[in-house]
Design a protein around this nucleic acid. Structure first.
Lengths: 367, 367
DNA sequence: TTTAGCACTCTTGCATACCAAGTGCTAATC
DNA sequence: GATTAGCACTTGGTATGCAAGAGTGCTAAA
């Protein structure tokens, strides 16, 4: 028996593939009879039974109970997916189509990710996932202050990527445009690039001095900036279309659903997951990542598969989009869809929203 | 038999209340024997059976099947809730506690609502709901333009309530602070208070002229403003903690869950629901609203109850928070919690985030 | 008007039997 | 040596029958 590089004969590989695909399609354990009659093999069911017993010994297949058909194990899916990865390619037309769908709602990254998550879900009929890792506190690169009324002021905090956050400051005393401008100048000259712990009392005092006569404004603004920066630090996870999974029998019990719904609460674990798998690979992380069953550390996803790809801006990972579904997922479609989606987002945010200032220094090594 | 205003004898009312409360607690049909032994009645089970038959005839109770205990009908819950509403009162300490919980994440209304939804869910162990109706397109009251780099510009669009949206404009040509200032001046003088259909070609031309030499900027900005304004128009619905409902047997089938999860998609229906019930009541809408089962028009909520209260800012409805749960909901707790929560939000956004301009004229009649 | 008692209905749980699907194994065949 | 046909075996799912339990409605008596 001549075996291939992976230790299986050609026929065994073909049987495994066929089992995986049949199970993906029908969701029911596939037996030797079915395989024998599907036309791909020119041997009897007995032979196939022998081969399947072999595949089970290798850990690629298993039976839910004695005397039912076989079902792929995690390793079985992994084998299937790995052999698939070499051949998939997302067509340019897909990318174009997805990009157009995204473009209608072109806006901030937050909204793009939400859209992407929805899109991923509706295109695949599984659950869509979008992740934005937290940003470092105090990462704003510029501030502006706009005087709205004698006693309120809009603070604009601009991120290096060109997006911005705004917050409303209300004062007990009257202020005017001069005060606002002074505040902006002070902030821009004093606390750019500083984290909260870098802000010392002497610095605060100097800033208040620069903002005089409305010196109180400076401390209010700094507090506000600190709050905003740390609050952003959480990162963000969008999960859309969990209800689509209810169609699949593997999610017919409430527990699995509860797990998925609770996923939003375990933000950090998901963020870690994306981050880790992005860095740990040998390649530079530009591929679609696939985690099947217990390959991820999240209990809630123990019986699911996760297909995702990171989104980059200027060479830095700024998020990820993907799909959560049953382990018997239509990997072929999903992989190319996720790839296209990530590419579409990359084009969108890369082309249209990146500030030239950081664009020119694409590979700054400040990590 | 002397009946009360509602057509029931005192004993019947008491039986109904007891049935509702017992069913809320246990989730199982309650029979005459249970009632007889609970200590509230000094008559035999046979008498209670007669009374319950009467209550069933009135439409307040029903039996899942012959020979099981009784279960409240929608009308039964309604009776219970209405008799409850006269007596509930949210304690000041509740409001304080909730306000503190919200304050940690004080930010924009969007975030407050998300937080409120989570809070509602965790405090009641049901599903939390927060709704923000859409804002009129073109409702921005002021614009600012900040030049970020020679070829990109941050457009700040300020709402009447003091919140702001920002968008990044990327140009093909170089711009500087002068251009940005000119753009802001132009926008502020030309399109404040205009809807998209009010913007005519002559107006556009005049604006481009005012922005010269970078006249192209004006049309880019207007398009961007239009997109942003209409996109906000959607309103927003946050549903948090659906997984908590999985604990309750009435949501053990996947269909009911699917309905709830799909609720996010039928945004508009929910928004209408909140709007309509806010206006249609006799009182001025300051009460907690309760919709039980088919009292709302959403199929997905047909077997659920919805308890919510609108959130106002300057006399105008800007959102609503509430709770979705099984019809046998702990109304007493939920009602006072929702009331406290809405009050807490009202205080937060009323006190801290309203622009003085509209704050001073709190009761301006522009609705 | 209330109560005691009884017959009736319906659900639930349990044990049994049975069928269909699919396997593993052995012996015969290419 | 690889393949095949045939048969015994295992298992889940479904239908059936039976007994227990819970609760009601009704009637007759207090």
């Amino acid at each position: 028996m001549k075996t291939n590089a992976n230790g299986l004969t050609n026929r065994q590989s073909l049987i495994l593939r066929t089992v995986v695909e049949a199970y993906i399609d029908n969701g029911e354990p596939v037996g030797s009879k079915y395989l024998c009659e599907c036309g791909r093999f020119s041997c009897s069911s007995a032979t196939i039974r022998n081969e399947m017993a072999e595949l089970e010994a290798c850990g690629y297949l298993e039976q839910p109970h004695t005397s039912s058909g076989r079902v792929p194990t995690e390793a079985g899916y992994r084998f299937y997916v790995d052999s698939l990865l070499e051949t998939y390619n997302s067509t340019a037309s897909d990318v174009e189509r997805i990009k157009n769908a995204l473009k209608e709602k072109r806006a901030e990254l937050d909204q793009i990710l939400t859209q992407a998550s929805r899109l991923a879900s509706s295109l695949t009929n599984y659950t869509g996932l979008a992740v934005r890792p937290g940003q470092r506190a105090g990462a704003f690169c510029r501030y502006e202050a706009i005087c709205l009324s004698p006693r309120s002021l809009l603070l604009v905090m601009i991120n290096p990527d060109g997006t911005a956050k705004t917050r409303n400051l209300r004062t007990d005393f009257d202020i005017d445009k001069t005060d606002a401008d002074a505040l902006a100048r002070t902030l821009n000259s004093c606390i750019i690039g500083l984290s909260a712990s870098d802000i010392t009392l002497p610095l605060m005092m100097r800033m208040e001095e620069m903002c005089a006569p409305s010196s109180q404004l400076a401390s209010m603004a700094v507090k506000c900036i600190y709050e905003t920066a740390t609050e952003r630090n959480d990162g963000d996870v969008r999960i859309e279309g969990v209800n689509r999974l209810l169609e699949y029998p593997e999610y017919s019990d409430t527990e699995s659903i509860a797990g998925l719904l609770g996923l939003g609460d375990s933000k950090n674990a998901l963020l870690d997951l994306v981050r880790d798998s992005g860095e740990g690979e040998l390649d530079d992380g530009d591929d679609v990542k696939i985690l099947i069953g217990s390959e991820n550390r999240l209990d809630a996803l123990g019986s699911s598969a996760l297909v995702f790809k990171t989104v980059k801006r200027g060479g830095k990972v700024v998020g990820a989009v993907g799909v959560i579904g049953p382990r018997r997922m239509k990997y072929q479609n999903v992989i190319s869809m996720v790839d296209s989606l990530a590419s579409g987002i990359n084009e969108l945010i890369g082309d249209d929203m990146l500030l030239p200032t950081s664009d020119t220094e694409r590979n700054d090594g400040n990590e």
